[in-house]
Design a protein around this nucleic acid. Sequence first.
DNA 1: CCCCAAATATTGACGGCGTCAATATACCAG
DNA 2: CTGGTATATTGACGCCGTCAATATTTGGGG
Lengths: 215, 215
Amino acid sequence: MREKTTKRKPAARSYHHGDARNALLAAAAGLLEKVGAAGLSLRQVAERAGLSRQAPYNHFEDKEALLAELAREGFDRLGASLSVGGEPQAEMALERAADAYIRFARQAPALFRLMFSRELVDLSRFPTTARTAASAFDKLVQIVAAFAPPERVKELSLAAWSLVHGYATLCIETGLEGEELRARRARLFARIIRTDADDKRTAKLSPCPSVAGGP
Amino acid sequence: MREKTTKRKPAARSYHHGDARNALLAAAAGLLEKVGAAGLSLRQVAERAGLSRQAPYNHFEDKEALLAELAREGFDRLGASLSVGGEPQAEMALERAADAYIRFARQAPALFRLMFSRELVDLSRFPTTARTAASAFDKLVQIVAAFAPPERVKELSLAAWSLVHGYATLCIETGLEGEELRARRARLFARIIRTDADDKRTAKLSPCPSVAGGP
DNA sequence: CCCCAAATATTGACGGCGTCAATATACCAG
DNA sequence: CTGGTATATTGACGCCGTCAATATTTGGGG
């Protein structure tokens, strides 16, 4: 049913106003931070986009598919924010990435939750979103690889990700700390990872296997 | 219409069968891991407890209140698991706490999500649950205080919590790693925190203010 | 140019949800 | 026994996701 004997749409744009899909995504993104991912309803999204109740089903298989697309955009933005600027000194790269990660979660907490909520969107159904997520994580791995001994890159990037993700999550979910501590925490976390990477005692330990493939 | 004029079990406390509240909580806890916190409906809970659809409202103000009570029980169990056994050597305490934390999240992922999901239960509405959560976190602070210099206890316990919480969250939300790596990761995380606590370079830094009150 | 198959859009309907209102029942104090 | 109160049930409302049927728009081939 996808393509037949003839050519398809003139590519870029769609039939009517061509905009429906983007209008729905924009409406959903706007509503998301107001009502939360759980409270977001397709009917509100459609109305806000000026379309009928059933319009989302012309462009997305179901509600979860629309949420998955929002999540994909989120991972795209997050990944981009982790690698801004060159890498003048690998020194600061980790700290800046941590800061960007925390900032992202604070600026769009509902989107951040959505991106990491298996109950709301099961990434095994949406490989494109899953790949975008993996690519964002890979940015972090590269940053760690710039200073860590090769055999410790996996566990150290795992620890770095856990540390920053845990802090961001706890901040938005429990109100743990205020935004004003973001820079300080980013510095602390980066230093913790660096300190462990430089530690001589641990160098000879951990033959440690793999991190195994993500989602 | 259930049964008529005969008497009920006098039971412990309440009037009819006295057990309705606990039956509802048990039913909810059982369903939680099957359908997830978002998918859990009060109507299913009531039916599973053998009660009418409206029964939950006799014992809980609304759905969120029932979820908050489930979360409280969860924080109670989590807190208890963090302080099992004496503290023979503060050496192992952090590693064992990390292991217990990860194990908890893996054994009851839906409950774990619920406990840390502001969208599902807003702890500012439920101070009892909030206090139980704070008490669990305090266990971690005490463990860190056993080996860290006093002026670094706050930031190091914050880092330890973030590290372990982030790892546990990523595991259950993204299928990052399998259960078989739990013990190894707990050791890694404990070592990272200890290494930073022992690091001489960082000792003179960080005049660092407070962590500020939790939720 | 016109008309048609396909893509897109809308309305109706169904079952499930949380929760309010009204009602019925069981318990204990007096 | 009686009355008041805590508990339990049923009915109703509006919102939800989604299926089915229908209407409308579109671009391309006669």
